[in-house]
Design a protein around this nucleic acid. Structure first.
Lengths: 170, 170
DNA sequence: TTACTCATGTAACAAGTTACATGATTTA
DNA sequence: TAAATCATGTAACTTGTTACATGAGTAA
């Protein structure tokens, strides 16, 4: 069963066509996640695993830095589709730092809670702006993931506003 | 800097008061995440790290199975608050399996896309029901995280509906 | 007394991270 | 020619996973 990184690598190579591992890595580098860096150690290792499993094929370009272009094999495509369309995995909550922290914020004293929530709200608002800006540079396919990240931030902001409102009543 | 698991452990012990590692582990076991199991190997190791760092203190109960009750020290509370209120970490997108897959779904042929999206939608709907049911058993503090998980699923369902609508127009 | 739950943990493994090393190619 | 970027990777480490072992307490 593919890991999230392996699935994402297959998806990236499949979408953009022949790519070097370096290019794949660069695509992940500006991904809006603190939890997932797409670091060299992880990406090169995952590419090697996928190659060994027959899901990626490599084509040498013949240049002196041993550049290898990756492409997805039919077996890789099948595995990727299975990975992408498994509803159980697709709807998993994943790891949501905001959600994990939400209960703690509600336990704070009124003044500290207000301060914490407004600080987090501001950060979310800034990130939302950045995402909306970033989305403009992307095509429909790539925009989907940015759009969902933006909706997540909007949902969080909305949640904070409801909290602030509830507690303001007292 | 605390990991997400370490932060969550401190939060759990802090919220419920003196707990055994076993109890903490059980609380995480029914957490709605495929990515995060709160497995024995992880939780016992994390508790040991926190104890060693002076963030958790242990109290022997004196029974013959060496039961140890955990509580959060002042240093642990400080670290937990810093972890919880760091806006940078709190608003991170985290790892969202749905978001990672979204671009792939849009690349499918109309019929496969329809099938994939409706299957995922049904799963999300079922999960939403389960979450809403689960939320009823929880108090305000604990409900926050369940509520946010439910909102996430609602947002995903909404996104799917928009996709289906957009493509139905052709 | 049998089975279940409470409670501790370890061992082998998987899959990330940072930080570094190495050298080719391109651009200012 | 100097600096930046492209491109490959490895080594040491961290943190998680599954699967197992061990035994105490409790309820049928």
């Amino acid at each position: 069963m593919l890991t999230e990184l392996e699935g994402a690598i297959l998806a990236e190579v499949s979408y953009r066509g022949r790519q070097t591992t370096f290019q794949v890595r660069k695509s992940f580098a500006d991904s809006p996640s603190l939890e997932w860096k797409g670091s060299a150690g992880a990406v090169y290792a995952a590419v090697n695993r996928l190659h060994k499993a027959g899901m990626l094929s490599t084509h040498a370009t013949g240049d002196r830095r041993a550049t290898k272009l990756l492409s997805v094999t039919p077996a890789g495509r099948t595995a990727m589709m299975e990975w992408a369309c498994d509803p159980h995995r697709a709807i998993s909550t994943g790891i949501d730092p905001f959600r994990i922290r939400s209960g703690i914020w509600l336990q704070l004293s009124a003044s500290r809670r207000y301060k914490a929530l407004t600080t987090v709200r501001e950060a979310a608002q800034r990130d939302l702006q950045a995402l909306q800006n970033y989305a403009r540079k992307k095509d429909t396919i790539e925009r989907a993931s940015v759009d969902l990240a933006a909706r997540l931030q909007q949902m969080r902001i909305h949640w904070i506003d409801e909290c602030l409102k509830t507690f303001a009543e007292h």
